[in-house]
Structures are given as structure tokens and as C-alpha cells.
Amino acid sequence: MTSALDTFPVTQMPADGHYGPAGIHGVSVRVFDPPALALLAARRGGASALTVAAHATLGLALADAPRLARANGLGTIGAGPGRWLVLAEAPEDLTARLAPLAAHAAITEQTDGYVGFELSGVRTRDVLAKGVAVDLDPAAFPPGAAATTNVAHINVTFWREPGEERFVFLVARSYRVAFARFLIASGAEYGIAFAHRG
């Protein structure tokens, strides 16, 4: 019996299209390259000073928690003690924009290292329940909540977008095919559609 995974090689991303029973569409996946992404890591003992400087110079709120915050075309996600991922909404030289924070943090360009997967649809939580060891109930994981964890043995950072039932995952580029295969294996029974965007 042919499975949805048999339709593309283990070394290639799935093509745009639908996987699973015809006429059933429970999950949509948009695969994209982040416009700009960097990691901020506070220098020893400098997390408080970094937080103050980020707010004063860029209007950024660096929450000491795994949460998404947005301001001035940038998003921040707490990725661990004294560490934040910073995402730009449009392509830009993010390290240059973050340069005023260099006295308080190490700034590492990460844009080319990650691929984004945005999941939406009525069966999204059912798919994620098969591999995400985080309580995704809306009461426990409201819009703006984020986590860094392992999914199907792949390290990911993800968050829930405000508004619609949407989750966005950042996956190391070298694991993008493995993560796509996890999504198809977990979501084919609900009908899962892939679309790639720049």
C-alpha cells in the first residue's frame, strides 16, 4: 500500500499540493524562508542592561519568557535565559539594525540557517499532538506563547500567532525535509496541503 510519504524522496522537500484523502482538507502548511533572523545572547550579567537598551533604542520588549512580542517591524521570542530570537517582517540587514545592542549582547545572523513552517486549519492541533510534547490547549498556550523543544527528534522553536489558529515553526535548514515528512506522516489522515513561498 502506498503512503503519502512515498510520493517524494527522503532527500527532497514535498512539492506544492495535497497529501491524504481527496476532498479532505484539515491542515495547510506554508513553507517560507525567514526574511531576516538573528540571535541575541546577553553578555554575562548583562541581561537587564540589554533589555533596557533594546526598549530604548528599538522599542523591543525582551520578555524573560518563551513569548512572542512585536514592535517596529521586528518580533522577539525568548529562546532561553538571556537569549532571544529576533525576526524581521521584511528583508533587511538585521545585524546592522541590532548593532546598538552590541555592548550588551552577542548578535549572530541566523537567516540562512532556518526554514519556516506555518500551520493552520481545523486539524492543526491534531497533527501537532502526534509530535509536540507541549500542552497546546488554548488556555495553556494562548496566542503569543512560544516554546523551544524537540518534535520528532528535531529541535524547533515555535509560537502561536495571534488571531487565527496558526502556529509557526522555525526549523534548522538541514532538517527541513525530515520535519516536512513528520507533518505529512502525521497529517495525511486529515488532509494536508503544502505551499512554498519565498
Score class of each variant (00 low, 15 high):
Ala4Arg: 05
Ala4Asn: 10
Ala4Val: 08
Asp6Gln: 13
Thr11Ala: 14
Pro14Gly: 08
Ala15Ser: 14
His18Pro: 10
Gly20Pro: 08
Gly20Glu: 08
Ala22Arg: 14
Gly23Gln: 13
His25Asp: 11
Gly26Cys: 08
Gly26Arg: 06
Gly26Lys: 06
Ser28Cys: 02
Val29Asp: 05
Arg30Glu: 14
Val31Thr: 12
Ala36His: 07
Ala36Pro: 07
Leu40Lys: 04
Ala41Thr: 15
Ala41Phe: 00
Arg43Gly: 12
Arg43Ser: 05
Gly45His: 11
Gly46Phe: 01
Ser48Arg: 15
Leu50Gln: 07
Thr51Phe: 00
Val52Ser: 09
Ala53Val: 09
Ala53Gln: 13
Ala54Arg: 06
Leu58His: 12
Gly59Trp: 09
Leu62Gly: 09
Ala63Thr: 15
Ala65Gly: 05
Leu68Phe: 09
Asn72Leu: 11
Thr76Ala: 06
Ile77Cys: 01
Ala79Gln: 00
Gly80Val: 02
Pro81Ser: 09
Pro81Glu: 10
Gly82Arg: 02
Gly82Val: 01
Gly82Asn: 04
Leu85Trp: 04
Leu85Lys: 00
Leu85Cys: 01
Glu89Cys: 01
Glu89Arg: 10
Asp93Leu: 03
Thr95Val: 07
Thr95Cys: 04
Ala96Pro: 03
Ala99His: 10
His104Gly: 01
Ala105Ser: 08
Ala106Val: 12
Ala106Asn: 14
Glu109Ala: 12
Gln110Asn: 11
Thr111Ile: 04
Thr111Tyr: 04
Gly116Ala: 13
Arg123Gln: 15
Arg123Gly: 06
Arg125Leu: 13
Arg125Thr: 15
Ala133Gly: 06
Asp137Cys: 04
Pro138His: 10
Phe141Lys: 09
Ala145Met: 07
Ala147Gly: 09
Thr149Glu: 07
Asn150Tyr: 08
Asn150Glu: 10
Val151Arg: 02
Trp159Asn: 07
Glu161Val: 09
Gly163Leu: 08
Arg166Val: 12
Arg166Gln: 08
Phe167Ile: 13
Val171Pro: 02
Ala172Glu: 11
Ser174His: 10
Val177Asp: 02
Val177Phe: 00
Phe179Leu: 02
Phe182Ala: 03
Phe182Gln: 05
Gly187Thr: 11
Glu189Ser: 14
Gly191Cys: 06
Arg197Ile: 09
